[in-house]
Computed example of a mutant assay.
Amino acid sequence: MPRGGARAVSGPPPDPRSLRSTKAIDKGGWRTLPAEGRQGEPPEWPLTTPAERELDLWHDLWVKPQAVAWEDMGQELEVALFVRTLAEAERADARVDVKKMVRGYLDSLGMSVAGMNRNRWKIAPAVEEPAETAEPVRRPSARDRLKVVPSGEGA
């Protein structure tokens, strides 16, 4: 077993706000994923016949922002293996090693905060749709506040 030295996932994850990470950004290091997620139908299931739960997970995952990056990198097989492993890990009698595999997939696919940082991904701020614009409330002017009293009244 090697002693000391760098490891693939050693040290703190990169921080997009740090000066050192800013240099990585300049080199194209951080990728901003769309908040609305991936649009369209999910890719074709690449493994053997899926269970119904696997298809549900598959459809849920392919609308996430991370799915844009998975598609660009051709990670359909890795996502399918994650789905199959996650479905197995959900069972009450699931083995601990299967649950640990799920954690590894979460990180490698950018589904956890640590995984997002290690992949140097961030999600764009959500664009809120403008609310229905009502008539702007008009404050009364000084002239509106003056009451005109006709002569002869109030005496």
Rank of each mutant, 00 (worst) to 15 (best):
E71N: 08
T133P: 08
A67L: 02
G110P: 00
N117C: 14
I123M: 04
E90G: 09
E128H: 11
E88R: 12
D144F: 01
M73Y: 07
V83I: 07
E128C: 03
V96A: 12
L81H: 04
V79Q: 00
P136R: 07
D72S: 14
L86N: 12
E128D: 07
E135S: 14
A131P: 07
R91Q: 10
L106E: 08
P65Y: 03
G104I: 12
D144G: 00
D93Y: 13
R143K: 05
E78D: 11
V127T: 15
T133M: 15
R103C: 08
A69Q: 05
A142C: 14
A89H: 07
A94S: 10
A134C: 13
D107L: 10
A87T: 13
N117P: 03
E71L: 09
R91S: 07
N119M: 14
A131N: 09
P140T: 03
T85L: 04
R120A: 04
A131M: 10
M73N: 09
E135V: 08
L86K: 09
I123W: 01
R139P: 01
A92W: 03
Q75A: 05
A87L: 01
A87C: 12
D97W: 12
R84Q: 14
D107Y: 06
L106T: 06
D144A: 10
Q66V: 03
V96M: 15
T85E: 03
A126L: 06
K99L: 13
P125S: 15
N117R: 12
R84I: 01
R120H: 09
R139L: 12
E76K: 04
V96W: 09
Y105S: 00
K100S: 11
L109C: 03
F82K: 00
G74Q: 01
V102S: 06
R91H: 10
D144M: 13
M111L: 15
M73F: 11
L106Q: 08
G110V: 05
L77E: 06
L77Y: 13
V68T: 04
R120L: 07
G104A: 06
A80R: 00
D144V: 01
W121E: 03
A131C: 05
G110W: 01
V79N: 00
E132F: 14
M111E: 10
M73H: 13
R84P: 05
M101D: 15
V83L: 05
A134I: 06
S141R: 12
R118L: 11
R95M: 13
E88C: 08
E90C: 07
M111Q: 13
M116P: 02
A92M: 09
E90R: 13
M101G: 07
V68G: 00
L77T: 14
P140S: 10
T133I: 06
R143L: 11
R103T: 15
E90I: 10
R120T: 06
P130C: 01
R118V: 15
F82T: 06
